[in-house]
């Protein structure tokens, strides 16, 4: 049964990647302007024509799409105008960088949001009110401002690098030192990404655990004299996880697709920043490549969310198995 379920999800992922990347390519093609405007107003007619031919802009949109599709099926996603090199390597490298960042951000968001949500949702106290207030602040702050404030703090205190993924000296470092250097650069973009997600998790968890604590079986356990701590952790929490799992997949997908604002401000060379630069330059094959990878990540995130949901809710597991 699990095999059939996974097969369905893989097929869904392939369709999602195809649809998202094709839509991105066609929208980038049909929107006003094209990549040749990056050549500036001084470009000669020959240069413009050569660039249009190189990026297949001299074909009809459908012709270009079919050509791209044929090449993409052989994992050739075309060349990037901006970087003047194949899209495949660029997207793979950026996706790996974003995956590192996303994993760190998800870990931080989970570690912060879930326990704080359990705390604030299970009791009424000044601490709970403070947590709620902080969550609302984190949710309402625009990512641009959060990122800039964090860069400012890093620049002021010099505790952490104010941007980038590695330091200049990383070039001559061993692997272990290089990894430590990356780890030193992670906290800034990680916090910028994780704080609003942690706040979302906290709010959902607080609401959900509050509801779970009112369930009859929890009240019955309470009447049987189960300790409050066990009541929350062993009885109410597993039930309360369902809404968290539902958004978890989306959060994973969104994080893996990259946040262009955070990556742009903190100079993290990830997928979001690459996509943003590609869109600005109308770098059509890079746009399509980034969109394909974003679609793949979204499908993976959705799959992980579903698996978590199934793990958290036996009824769902049984329904899918049936």
């Amino acid at each position: 049964m699990l095999v059939r379920f996974l097969a369905r999800r893989v097929a869904f992922a392939l369709v999602l990647v195809l649809v998202v990347s094709s839509a991105a390519l066609l929208l980038a093609r049909l929107a006003p302007g094209d990549v040749t405007s990056q050549l500036g107003p001084f470009a000669s007619a020959g240069e413009v024509a050569g660039t249009r031919a190189r990026f297949d802009l001299d074909r009809t949109p459908s012709g270009q799409w079919l050509l791209w599709l044929g090449r993409a099926s052989r994992f050739d996603f075309g060349d990037s105008f901006l970087y003047n090199r194949p899209v495949r390597g660029l997207v793979a490298r950026a996706a790996a960088n974003t995956a590192v960042l996303a994993a760190a951000a998800l870990a931080v968001a989970t570690a912060l949001g879930i326990p704080l949500g359990m705390l604030s949702g299970s009791r009424r106290s000044a601490a709970a009110a403070l947590i709620r207030g902080l969550s609302l602040v984190c949710l309402s702050l625009p990512p641009l401002l959060t990122s800039l404030v964090l860069v400012f703090i890093a620049a002021t205190t010099r505790w952490l690098p104010a941007g980038g993924m590695t330091s200049v000296d990383a070039l001559d470092m061993r692997w272990s030192a290089w990894l430590a250097d990356v780890a030193l650069h992670l906290p800034l973009p990680t916090l910028a990404l994780a704080l609003p997600i942690a706040a979302t998790f906290e709010r959902l968890q607080a609401q959900s655990i509050g509801d779970a604590l009112q369930q009859p079986f929890v009240l019955a356990a309470s009447a049987r004299g189960v300790a409050p701590r066990d009541l929350i952790v062993r009885h109410a929490w597993p039930v309360s996880l369902r809404p968290i799992c539902a958004v978890y997949g989306l959060a994973i997908g969104a994080l893996l697709s990259g946040s262009f604002v955070v990556e742009f401000v903190t100079a993290w060379p990830g997928l979001g920043r690459l996509m943003y630069e590609a869109l600005r330059a109308r770098d059509i094959y890079l746009v399509a490549g980034c969109a394909a990878m974003g679609g793949l990540f979204l499908a993976v995130g959705s799959l992980i969310g579903d698996l978590l949901l199934a793990a958290a809710d036996p009824r769902l597991r049984e329904r899918r198995a049936g």
């Binding site: 860069v151 620049a155 104010a162 941007g163 401000v265 100079a267 060379p269």
Partner: peptide
């Protein structure tokens, strides 16, 4: 070293910090 910093505000903060 030519460090690629796409955002101008962050660029200035990094100039200030000596990075």
């Amino acid at each position: 070293v030519l460090e690629i910093v796409p955002e101008q505000n962050a660029e200035l903060l990094r100039l200030q910090s000596g990075e």
